[in-house]
Design a protein around this nucleic acid. Structure first.
Lengths: 122, 122
DNA sequence: TGTATATTTAACCAGATGGTTTTAGACAGC
DNA sequence: GCTGTCTAAAACCATCTGGTTAAATATACA
């Protein structure tokens, strides 16, 4: 199981937790965009949008390339894939243990049926 | 593409962004736990841990069942699966468009080779 | 050189977050 | 009924978040 206290995961999930940042990623799915292009559909001031891009950069979800006076951003897939894999591993672990729990419950019920009064704790 | 402004996603990703909350989910992977059991390994006060559980509840990642004076929590898989599917859809969209972009670049290079000076804008 | 454009930085603000300690409430068991 | 245990609620605090406006910086262009 992946280390839970990973600052990388903190930053990635935090970055994904804001709709404006997800919208920015959505734009970047269609290719490189500069900050103005990213900010214009966002119903907030330019500096606010710029801050959101920074959050995405800190999470390594976006990489910036300065060309003259424009800052071109592109999506960086790796952390997205890592987050997905973390979630998948998590779900698998959880499902596996819930299957085990179901099996245990079945077994306990069977034992209860065969030899009653054997009171199980937990 | 899933609606980006979904408050559900906001809550789920925000819940996943804190290591203590991921640790709580990790504990719950092994089955039901009460609040004391969840709080004890967390190196913080009980009320702090209790607040984290509430955040997980608001994100529907955890469901609580009150039995006498103990509150039993269990993991709720659906939002986790939904977040995973959102990430997967996202990645697919992004990969698909980057493939398109690659193809477009190849095409542009070919045209540039065949009829030079046809300067394409974006 | 002067002007317009793209972006950052600074200063500020309200509200959320994450933690604490203390107090209170509900229930189990003697 | 008393006592101990599990949990919630309140009050408080520092810091972070997400937004604003205004000023500064850097670059393109005429």
């Amino acid at each position: 199981m992946v280390l839970d206290s990973s600052p990388k995961l903190n930053r990635v999930f935090h970055a994904l937790a804001h709709p404006a940042r997800r919208a920015i990623l959505r734009s970047l799915c269609d290719g490189e965009r500069n900050l103005s292009e990213l900010a214009s559909p966002l119903k907030m001031s330019f500096p606010a949008a710029s801050k959101h891009v920074r959050v995405l950069e800190r999470a390594k979800l976006v990489r910036r390339r300065v060309v003259g006076r424009t800052h071109l951003c592109r999506i960086e897939g790796k952390p997205l894939v890592e987050a997905e894999q973390w979630l998948e591993a998590y779900r698998r672990h959880w499902e596996r243990n819930f299957l085990r729990l179901d099996a245990l419950l079945d077994q306990m019920k069977a034992e209860e049926r065969d030899q009653p009064r054997g009171h199980p704790n937990r």
